[in-house]
Amino acid sequence: MIPASFDYVEAASAEAAIAALTEHGDEAKLMAGGHSLIPLMRFRLATPAVVVDISRLSGLSYVRDGGDHLAIGALTRHCDVETSDMVRSQAGLLAHVAGQVGDPQVRHRGTIGGSLAHGDPASDLPAALLALGGSVVARGPGGERVIPAAELFTGFLETALAPDELLTEVRVPKVPDARWSFQKFNRRAQDWAIVGVAACGNGAGTGVALINMGQTPMVAAAVQSALASGASAADAAARAAEGTEPPDDLNGDAEYRTHLAQVLVGRALAEMA
């Protein structure tokens, strides 16, 4: 299929992109690598009147040392996050997860900001950001604000980003010595996870996040609190599905996903032990 027609606006800067979003409102969609948006447009599930192309804002592709955190430009591609020495040494989970998104071709084009802004509960990177306790920087007409990962994902494919805001940077705490684990259960390597778990030791304890267990990417809150209160890994894992609303689709129903979440959290905690 071919997307429906649209007006194409190439933003020369982040400010220009924000101006275009302000001008066109709901009619406009930002396009970075396009790997979340173009598939929807090809099926005409998304038919924006205006596409604001930010894919060539090279200034938003970087990995920087932000002191206590890593600052990663929103347009940094998955393959660049995956192979960045700084990300690998300071936030190993994130580098690893970036290397698990889609397939090599997708990783050569898709961006970390685009993936997070899409807010897909089945995608990998949001869980990594949640487990790391990271945040994103949103820039709008009124300036910048920092949105903690835990507040970013508000509904199915919905985020706390305002329609005229641009996600410009991703921040994750530097956790060079942290143990981490990523468990992705799928039927084919290229598929989204049926259920996935990202877990990482961070300053606040152990962050555990779930993939494809509800309407949004989510923290496994019951697991985290169990661990914080000293529960065994097995007892904590048993609580993996608490507070989730697992979807029912061809690959799994709620019962099976609940089971998988428990198994995968258990495996993640075992790997980290």
Binding site: R188, Q190, L250
Partner: peptide, 16 residues
Amino acid sequence: LRNPSLLDYLVPSAAE
């Protein structure tokens, strides 16, 4: 048909 596309109709790859 719930899975007409190759996203959901699972033709295996080399990795499997």
